[in-house]
Amino acid sequence: MFPRSFEYFAPTSIEDALALLAEHGEDAKVLAGGQSLIPLMKLRFAAPDYIVDINRIQGLDYLEEQDGSLRIGALVRTSDMERSELIASRYPAMAAAAPLISDPVVRNLGTVVGSLCHADPQGDWASVMLAMGAELVCRSATGERRVAIGDLIDGPFTTTLEPNEIATEVHVPDPGAHSFGTYLKLERKVGDFASVGVAVHLALDGDRVERAGIALTAVGAGNIKAKEAEDALAGAVLDDATIDRAASLAAEAADPKTDLRGSADYKREIVRVFVTRALSQAATAKAA
């Protein structure tokens, strides 16, 4: 399968890349890992006139904490997340998600930021980032802004990113001194997209949940933030009744469709089971 012809640019600085987008924005596409964009171009679902390959820009592959919050540069690959000791020690929801995303060879190229910009309703990173309250830093030739992940996603494969913008990093707030996180994903085989995915992040204060983030993958037109379930947990102690209630509220927030991966009822039930499982894990971890 051959993509349509396009003109190729491989700028070596972010300023050059932004200048190219300022000129060609509407007809251009940014190329990061290419693991979503190139398949789409081969199928001619995407047929940009210009490709701006950002892979030759130095210094976009940082993965570091600054003043307690985490910065993930636009060229950090999912495989970097999988192997990072920082992620393993401080960000359990990300550490759980990374090895479940696509397959090992795709992860070597696919980026975290690219996954967020692609806005596939079955994308796993967006749920993790929604649960953790992350923001995307977007730059254009004329300025920079920050967008919460919830405001970025505008529908299936649609974002509020402007055509002249490059997302340069994800910014994840401090998870808190005592936190719990996980990502649970039901997939049919390695490399398959989620039938259902659930991200949970809890900031804890002793026995009580201070703040809860719960987000759902593949059960709606975009990743869903289960706001009511989160509110039910805030300030509460993780006893059985609280867990049941939050899990039911999360299942109600899901809006799944029946397809090859299962019926809508089945998927909704998996959301309930996964949220219960994650919160029970959190309760046990705390008790230990």
Partner: peptide, 24 residues
């Protein structure tokens, strides 16, 4: 991009050569 038959090593790292442009 699903089977890996086209896997090659790019500076030692496995990548799927059906999902990368030669110019890259």
């Amino acid at each position: 991009t699903s089977c890996g038959a086209c896997t090659v090593l790019l500076d030692g790292t496995p990548v799927k050569s059906c999902t990368m442009f030669a110019v890259q």
